[in-house]
């Protein structure tokens, strides 16, 4: 699977020259692979074998079977001779090794998996230490730091976001949900089109509200969120990230006054941006919610249907790729 690699036309001569140059590298790689696989078959759980897996995974971190073998060596060959403190130190160096690999290959699943495994195997300790001083807390704190560096390099890397949720779930004392709201806000303010951060924000609020919030509290929070998302909508009305978040806040339109208020706010934006696809698309959706939420008589319903049909017709013109969908919605 290759992504974003430019095609170069190589003549037969060039290919032959490249292969000649690569030959010694290729032979060394094949020899090393055969050696490590033979050791794996023989269940050789020695330090020497461990070091060879380091070398091989450095050349190719996609070799999931070699990561598996490495863990077997740790469990069966190295850990049994170590004190808990020694295991902790070894796992730290293991994490350093995978940090280097992640910098070069931020999207290789097996490297992220290996980190998760390391964290799950940190022994309890040091003896008698409170939670804040425990080895596990130290490790998770560092993981969060590294994860944030990964998200600085690529703010949409879903591996890093998934790992982040894994960290926060594994050590709930590490960060409060409020801290996570601050973090997502920072990421969103750096780029309104970072849907991964908007998504995370919706999940954090959901968790917060599940812990127990009054309807009044939820409403207040949502009001400030509506203001926040408005900034993004006004900055670039063509960016779908903020519109999706807006839809999450509206939900099924349970809060009728809020639904009406937001419809008015989008109509205002539409008056400034009359050809905004997302304004029109969202208004059609919200007005349809309105019909299911409020008791309208026949004339009101007919008027609303006429209004949304005018918008759907306009959408067919400004967004022709999805013309048939707008046609179907108008039927």
């Amino acid at each position: 699977m290759s992504h974003g690699v430019k095609r170069a036309r190589e003549s037969a001569d060039v290919v032959a020259a490249r292969r000649e140059k690569e030959r010694s590298k290729l032979n060394a790689y094949l020899e090393l692979t055969d050696d490590v696989l033979a050791r794996k078959r023989a269940s050789a759980f020695t330090q020497e074998s461990f070091d060879l897996t380091t070398k091989l995974l450095g050349l190719n971190p996609e070799l999931y079977s070699i990561w598996n073998y490495r863990r077997l060596i740790l469990l069966n060959g190295l850990f049994p001779n170590l004190s808990p403190e020694g295991i902790f130190t070894l796992l730290q160096s293991e994490l350093n090794f995978t940090t280097g690999a992640l910098k070069v290959h931020p999207k290789v699943y097996w490297i992220w998996n290996h980190r998760r495994w390391c964290l799950a195997n940190v022994p309890p300790g040091p003896d008698g230490a409170p939670v804040e001083k425990s080895w596990k807390r130290q490790m998770w704190t560092r993981e969060l730091f590294i994860d944030e560096r990964m998200l600085e390099a690529d703010a949409r890397n879903f591996h890093a976001w998934n790992y982040r949720r894994n960290i926060l779930a594994s050590d709930p004392g590490l960060r409060t949900l409020q801290d996570e709201l601050t973090y997502t806000k920072k990421k969103i303010e750096a780029s309104f089109s970072n849907f991964s951060a908007w998504h995370q924000r919706s999940k954090v609020y959901t968790a917060l509200w599940e812990e127990g919030s009054s309807a009044e509290d939820v409403r207040k929070v949502k009001d400030t969120e509506f203001e926040f998302v408005q900034q993004a909508l006004y900055t670039d009305p063509g960016d779908q990230s903020a519109w999706l978040y807006h839809r999450w806040l509206i939900g099924n339109g349970e809060d009728l006054p809020v639904l009406k208020r937001e419809i008015a706010a989008i109509e205002e934006l539409l008056s400034v941006e009359p050809d905004s696809k997302w304004c029109l698309e969202t208004l059609v959706h919200y007005k349809r919610l309105l019909t299911s939420r409020s008791h309208m008589d026949e004339t009101e319903l007919a008027a609303l249907k006429k209004e949304t049909n005018v918008m759907l017709e306009k959408l067919q013109g400004i967004d022709p790729k999805r013309r048939i969908r707008y046609q179907e919605l108008g039927m």
Partner: peptide, 12 residues
Amino acid sequence: TDDLMYHLTAHL
């Protein structure tokens, strides 16, 4: 098979 890339994708 004499291309390094071929062998680096053995896992696939």
